[in-house]
Design a protein around this nucleic acid. Sequence first.
DNA 1: TAGATTGTTAATCGATTAACAATC
DNA 2: TAGATTGTTAATCGATTAACAATC
Lengths: 217, 217
Amino acid sequence: MGMKANGKISTAVIRRLPKYRRILQELMVKGVERISSNELSALTGFTASQIRQDLNNFGGFGQQGYGYNVEGLHGQIGNILGLDREYRMAIVGCGNLGQAIANYATYYKTGFVVTSMFDVNPKLIGISINGIEVQDYSEMQSCLEKNPVDIGIICTTKGSAQDVADKLCNGNVKGIWNFAPTDINVCEGMVLENVHLSDSLNTLAYFISHNDPRNEA
Amino acid sequence: MGMKANGKISTAVIRRLPKYRRILQELMVKGVERISSNELSALTGFTASQIRQDLNNFGGFGQQGYGYNVEGLHGQIGNILGLDREYRMAIVGCGNLGQAIANYATYYKTGFVVTSMFDVNPKLIGISINGIEVQDYSEMQSCLEKNPVDIGIICTTKGSAQDVADKLCNGNVKGIWNFAPTDINVCEGMVLENVHLSDSLNTLAYFISHNDPRNEA
DNA sequence: TAGATTGTTAATCGATTAACAATC
DNA sequence: TAGATTGTTAATCGATTAACAATC
């Protein structure tokens, strides 16, 4: 039960947590009540030892001779990830990708709520996506003051990304989810998560051209 | 010049290559001719030592006392990644995300060509996206026989992803780029690159809720 | 030539795996 | 209780960093 979380957990561990939780969710749907680290190993591809090691960074969630309670562990990991609260999000750049995320985020992820969307394109300003009206990017700063968000999502072109990032930093968002195919500089304390699709595709090309099927990213 | 590439290069190294190349491209645009591992370190955030180590997995591209030729190194890394050829791609699932990728891929990435798109939704079948007509998913297998592709891109819901993956395996694609928020099983030899947006967002939530700005994914 | 910077080996650090005692 | 499986320590493995000789 008790979170240890004394020191810094390595990012490798943290990035495995969502997968654990995803698989536990599927088990819950199937009505599975308990699972051992060995069975989880088969489902995740990680070793049983690593799974036990990972989980014990945060606390002893299992029980000797029994394993882990699926629902309980799912909840624990959710808490660790900070999914026991709501995150308000603003999408900047409302092209296909921005729209995809607007729909996607609300569809798959309760807890993540898109509360505003911004663009510079007059054809997009004013239209409604998933119930959210696209606002003029020039009004973003004042909008964010009135309606603060936790996460800014950058779905613009490479060229605009840094300007957006700067304005999001001023707008007191806590984290930036960056889909623009470039690296951006962010202010002290800002959490940054990049989704570099072009890098991902290039990596795929590497493995294809080298005939090297080392699955799983 | 000469590729070593004797043994298997670690995936950690491979995943850094696209970033090197991306930054070299920007330097080319700026007209920069040469760069040292130290300067590259400042631009990438990796240590100079690591950069030299990484590159020397593939060959000695630098010159003592000089550094690296920007254009030359950019080309070399492109070759290593397998970007000296064309990749034909099929998109399965033509919602916002599929459409975003259809536009994105061709816009940013020469060398990656979307040649066909498939969906089950009658409202989407027949429409044209970026010049490609959306075809009925039920015809995918015969279409792929007539017009083979290298990469299949899964932009469907969780529930359909495995069926799509199976059909892509039969369709002789070489790699799968999976955007569905689930893990899929692929046949022997298939290259799989997952883009788990929900995992990425969960990771972002972790760092926000722990007030831990360990930037860069 | 002297200075700069690579290529490469050796040292360090961290992450993964193995093993097993604790315990349900 | 006996069996199963965790929690945790120790051993191994691999990746990163440091150092420096080679060389442009």
